[in-house]
């Protein structure tokens, strides 16, 4: 019996090892490469940084040539931390607006008759079937002076002058909220759909009017969906590059753009790597806090 189990157990261990292997190969290894680049210096070389690994005999010299210079620069130059802060601000605003729009949307979808729900879900996902880039370009057409939005506003007599929204922070926010909204709606919908309707009846039965029942039952029970949706929107929004590049102006310098120009325009791969490493930690920190909050909540109960 015991011997018969051994191969099965080995197989079981192998199955467990696969995801770890995956993480090692596709997350840790690239991260190690980026980290090593971040400790290097920019150089006119191939690839454009120094030092290069010359074999284990010169390992000592190799390690000695690595330094924290790039990270020091990130700390010293206000441009970088201001860009980080600006990115966090834009991402936070995007998350909040997406939540404010996404929650009622998901709620309405979850309250719709079952047979409609799959159709509504398809409508939310539908924009994903066209290229992301094309959708952002479409917003240029809408937001540009005398574009669709201006035409509609002028046609209805709301405004007489063009709004000139394109290349402003407002345009970036519109584009970001539009692009990331489905990531907010889907987890919220999943949570709200699972919500046992008899809980709301129980709340009403115990004297809670609809709004109170929402605030005391629906809302707290949808917190996992809110957290998941916010994380799905916030994390990619911080590093977003395309939307601020296309819809933004000189004032909307997000860290993704800084990284891009360090890497491509300035050919400073080490500094770009340092920007990326810090960005990763900026993103991991709130996630770790979130996870900890969730753990302590579970532990206290």
């Amino acid at each position: 019996m015991r011997t018969g189990n051994a191969p099965t157990r080995r197989l079981g261990r192998l199955v467990v090892a696969v995801p770890y292997l995956w993480l090692l190969l596709f997350f840790l290894a690239p991260f190690a490469i980026v980290l090593r680049m971040a400790f290097s210096d920019a150089a006119t070389d191939l690839p454009p940084y120094a030092p290069h690994f010359q074999g284990f005999s010169q390992l000592g010299e190799f390690i000695a040539a690595l330094d924290l210079e790039n990270f020091r620069l990130l700390g010293d130059d206000p441009l970088y931390w201001q860009s980080y802060l600006y990115s966090l601000r834009i991402a936070a605003l995007t998350t909040l607006i997406a939540l404010a729009i996404g929650y009622p949307l998901a709620y309405a979808m979850a309250s719709a008759p079952r047979r409609w729900q799959s159709l509504l879900l398809v409508l939310v996902i539908l924009p994903f079937w066209t290229s992301f880039l094309i959708r952002v370009y479409a917003w240029i057409g809408i937001l540009r002076p005398e574009g669709l939005l201006d035409m509609v506003l002028a046609g209805t007599g709301v405004t007489s002058e063009p709004l000139r929204l394109l290349n402003t922070e407002a345009a970036v926010l519109i584009g970001m909220v539009y692009s990331y909204l489905p990531f907010m709606v889907l987890p919220l919908f999943a949570t709200l759909q699972k919500l046992d309707r008899s809980l709301l009846e129980a709340a009403a039965d115990l004297g809670a009017p609809a709004w109170t029942a929402f605030a005391t039952v629906t809302l707290p029970l949808s917190i996992p969906g809110i957290l998941a949706g916010s994380a799905l929107v916030f994390i990619p929004a911080v590093g977003e590059f395309v939307i601020p590049d296309l819809l933004g102006g000189p004032d909307t310098v997000m860290i993704g753009k800084v990284l891009w120009s360090e890497f491509f325009s300035n050919r400073d791969w080490p500094l770009a790597s340092a920007v990326a490493v810090v960005l990763l930690f900026v993103l991991v920190a709130p996630l770790a806090l979130l996870q900890r909050a969730r753990l302590t909540r579970g532990g206290a109960a």
């Binding site: 046992d196 008899s198 809980l199 009846e201 129980a202 709340a203 009403a204 039965d205 115990l206 004297g207 809670a208 009017p209 029942a213």
Partner: peptide
């Protein structure tokens, strides 16, 4: 429902 002096014990307990 929330104004009725009637309470209910749900089958699922809710």
């Amino acid at each position: 429902p929330h104004r009725r002096p009637i309470n209910m014990m749900f089958q699922s307990y809710a």
